[in-house]
Structures are given as structure tokens and as C-alpha cells.
Design a protein around this nucleic acid. Structure first.
Length: 424
DNA sequence: TCTGGGGTCCTAGGACCC
DNA sequence: TCTGGGGTCCTAGGACCC
């Protein structure tokens, strides 16, 4: 048995933790740069606001219903997520943190000793008590079915918050009118294809012929169908795998044409990317830099260049990666365009302790390692970018738009809420 | 005026080897 | 007129996830 626990309207719920007066108020949280709606409280969902709509398209609705709008505050969400995960993980030996707001639990053997529904109700209660975050839990014999069960909670088991598919009879019963497009692993393309061929529900897909699935949805689709049949094909990944590629990119608050400002922004991304590389103990063998103009402005000239640079020695050194990024940027930069976004990819990732030397290249890795280690520990102690490279600049003319950012209630001392005991 | 930022896996096809 | 039978590796593109 597996369970999937997920946080309801996670980002929106996080904003409510320290502003409880927003409990019944409709709220949305926006993507970076205050662009699109990425989280909605249930009041907003009821108003018909879809996931991912640009906020400017619903500004009338916002005004009319007094929707509270938040910029995304990933520091807050990340911290609350780790509190939720640590509470849940105390109930089970093996678990997989699948995303910022979801965790798979391995309940193998639990069903003989526990009433799983009661057990999960207790988990829900304690998570809510410890963190104030509401969660839903789906339980079933495979991860795909647990995902589906979790989805069913919101439709049919709102009051208990738990849905348990004990055996294939439960599964068949529940999947009879489960939209095939709501399954984990069925996106827009597959949904259209499946419905065109008469597989409108999860139950119909479960009974589809293997050859047809293999041919049209590849082995990934076949795994999905087998999981629906109760045959586990997707393992629990307890240790997150090392990234095979690392990307850091951002849109700019405003369009930018000036090379020196692009350099500041790109080197900040390059620096961050090198930090991610060091965090997982890897080197990269090549980098690639890209620029984007604003694709929604059809009235302006468009330009989407990118450039890959191979490094002489695999590295995770910030200065090496920043200077390679700068070189690439100079090769693709053209004046006269209004750029909206830039970013860097790190590729050819290898373990840092497994460095292939080059007869013709001086290896100063040890020296660089010492420097990076010092910089990383200073930034850990004093806060992000306390110590940074001069090319990153200080003015941040390229910074994100974040007009409705909440405080970092749990991670910055000056933002910690105060309680006046005399008043209460 | 205003439209996010990350990732993974699989397949087909081409280039190459003997 | 007739032109084999194995492989590997890489890349681009397309599907998916949050």
C-alpha cells in the first residue's frame, strides 16, 4: 500500500498561516514577476479562475470579489513545506518527498496492523495542529492509484480528507467515472488521443489492450495502465537523484537592452547555478546561455539566441562558470532588442570527486574549492549573496516584480510575528 | 502595461563502427 | 541487374510532472 499526502492549495494555505483573518477570504498567489495565477484558495476556484491565467486578465474579478493577491514567497513556502514533511515522516519509515507539497508514504505491511483510514486521519490532524496546513491523503496499492485516490478526496471525501482504495473492487468502482485526463501521467496530448479512441475514463483505460497502449503511449503508458490494474511499476524514490541538468533563469521586471545589465543578471544566475552544482557535489562540463525577447509583443522584433560553451575542465567553481557565461553572452548579444528573460543551463554533469584532468590545462581545482567553500559558508551564515562577485552588480535594475510579497515569518528574525500578551 | 521556472523520460533518426 | 547484418552513440523533439 502507498499513500499520497498533499497540501490543499498549498501556497494559498501558507499565506493564511500567519494571516488567519484571510481564512474565508478568496486569495491567489502569483508566479515569479507577478505574472500568472499559480495557487488559488477554494473560494477563487469556485469563481472559475483557472490555473495559470495571467493576473491582468482577471483584474475585474479581483476587484469585484476582493480577491487578495500575493507575490510568490518561496522562502516561506519552502520552510513550511519542510515542517509539514517532517511531521508526516514521523509516521512512516519510508517516504518520498515528491514535490514541495506532496509526499508518498510506503504503507507496506501497515494494513495488517492499523486501520489505515484512522491512521491517516490522525496524520491530517497533527499536521494541521503543528503547521496549520490542511492536507488530503489517498491510499491505494500503487502510486498511480494513490494519486487518483488523493484526487477523489476533493470530490467525494471532503469531510474526512482521506480516500482508501483497498482492493481492485474499490478501484474499479472509483475509476468508473474518473476522467482519464485527471490521471497522473496523462497530459493534454494523451487525453485527447485516448478520448478520441474511446478511453474516456480511467476504468476504460485500465482495460485497454496492451499492444495499443505500447504503440501509442510508449512503455511509460504501459506502466501507467499496469499501475491502474494494481501492479506496482513505479518505485518509491527515497533519496532524490542528482540533477542531470541545472537551469537558472528569470524574466526581468522590465524589458532590458543594455549589455551591462544583462551581464549583472546572468552572472547572478550563473553564480546561483554553481551553488546548486556544489550542493549536490557535481561538476559541469559545459554551459549554455540563452536570451529571450518578449514573445507576447508581436509588435517588437524577436530574438531567441543561445550559445553553448565547453569548459576546458569540468568545474563547479563560481568564477569559471560566471566568466564562461559572460563569454557566451557577448557572443549572442545584439543591441537594439528589448530582452525579457535570460538564463543559464549547466550540462554534462559529473561527480566532483571524479575529475578528468587535461594534459594541456592547468588544474587549480583545489585552490578554487577552498574559495568556494568559504564563500558558501559565509553566505549560509549571513544570508544569500552576502558575498558575491562584482559583476553581479548592486542596483538590480533587472529584478523581479514582487508587489505583494508577504513577510518571511519563519526564516527572518525581523519578520517573526510578535504577540502582545497584555492585549489578549 | 501586464503572460513562471524548474525538471524527467522516451523515441526516432542519423552518423558512425565492424 | 544485383548491394548484409549486426551494433553504439548522440541529438532533437515531444510527451509528461510540479
Amino acid at each position: 500500500m502507498y499513500a499520497l499526502a498533499d497540501c490543499n492549495n498549498f501556497y494559498a494555505s501558507c499565506e493564511r498561516v500567519f494571516q488567519p483573518h484571510l481564512e474565508k477570504v478568496p486569495i491567489v498567489v502569483l508566479s515569479n514577476n507577478d505574472g500568472c495565477v499559480v495557487a488559488r484558495s477554494h473560494e477563487v476556484k469556485d469563481l472559475g479562475v483557472k490555473m495559470g491565467v495571467p493576473i491582468f486578465m482577471i483584474k475585474d474579478l479581483v476587484k469585484q470579489h476582493g480577491i487578495k493577491v500575493f507575490s510568490s514567497n518561496y522562502v516561506l513556502y519552502g520552510d513550511i513545506s519542510s515542517r509539514v514533511m517532517s511531521t508526516i515522516s514521523s509516521y512512516v519509515q519510508n517516504y518520498e518527498v515528491y514535490s514541495i507539497d506532496e509526499v508518498f508514504l510506503d504503507f507496506t505491511g501497515f494494513d495488517t496492523n492499523f486501520n489505515l483510514v484512522d491512521y491517516c486521519k490522525e496524520i491530517r490532524y497533527v499536521v494541521r495542529r503543528n503547521t496549520r496546513i490542511p492536507i488530503s491523503i489517498g491510499i491505494a496499492p500503487t502510486k498511480t492509484l494513490a494519486k487518483a485516490a488523493n484526487k477523489l478526496v476533493k470530490k467525494r471525501f471532503k469531510d474526512t480528507g482521506v480516500c482508501y482504495l483497498k482492493d481492485q473492487d474499490d478501484v474499479k468502482e472509483m475509476l468508473r467515472d474518473f476522467d482519464v485526463g485527471d490521471l497522473w501521467g496523462v497530459g493534454r496530448q494523451y487525453e485527447a488521443l485516448l478520448k478520441k479512441h474511446g478511453f474516456e475514463t480511467a476504468l476504460k483505460l485500465m482495460n485497454a489492450p496492451d499492444e495499443w497502449i505500447r504503440k501509442n503511449l510508449s512503455v511509460v503508458g504501459l506502466r501507467l495502465v499496469n499501475e491502474l490494474r494494481g501492479v506496482p511499476c513505479i518505485d518509491l524514490d527515497e533519496v532524490p537523484a542528482k540533477k542531470k541538468g541545472i537551469c537558472v533563469s528569470r524574466s526581468f521586471g522590465n524589458m532590458i537592452s543594455d549589455l551591462s545589465i544583462l551581464e549583472e543578471s546572468l552572472s547572478t544566475h550563473a553564480n546561483r547555478a554553481s551553488e546548486k552544482l556544489r550542493e549536490q557535489g557535481s561538476n559541469c562540463g559545459s554551459i549554455s546561455v540563452f536570451l529571450h525577447t518578449n514573445r507576447f509583443r508581436s509588435d517588437l522584433p524577436q530574438y531567441f539566441p543561445s550559445k553553448e560553451i565547453e569548459l576546458p575542465l569540468a568545474t563547479n567553481d563560481a568564477s569559471n562558470i560566471i566568466s564562461a557565461a559572460q563569454k557566451a553572452l557577448e557572443l549572442i548579444y545584439k543591441p537594439g532588442y528589448n530582452y525579457k528573460k535570460c538564463g543559464i543551463f549547466l550540462n554534462d554533469i559529473t561527480p566532483a570527486d571524479d575529475l578528468q584532468l587535461n594534459l594541456f590545462v592547468q588544474d587549480d581545482t583545489d585552490k578554487k574549492n577552498k574559495l568556494n567553500k568559504s564563500v558558501d559558508s559565509l553566505n549560509k551564515k549571513y544570508g544569500k549573496d552576502s558575498l558575491k562577485y562584482a559583476i553581479q552588480g548592486t542596483k538590480k535594475e533587472w529584478k523581479l516584480r514582487q508587489e505583494n510579497l508577504s513577510l518571511s515569518y519563519t526564516t527572518r528574525l525581523s519578520d517573526v510575528p510578535c504577540v502582545d500578551l497584555n492585549k489578549s
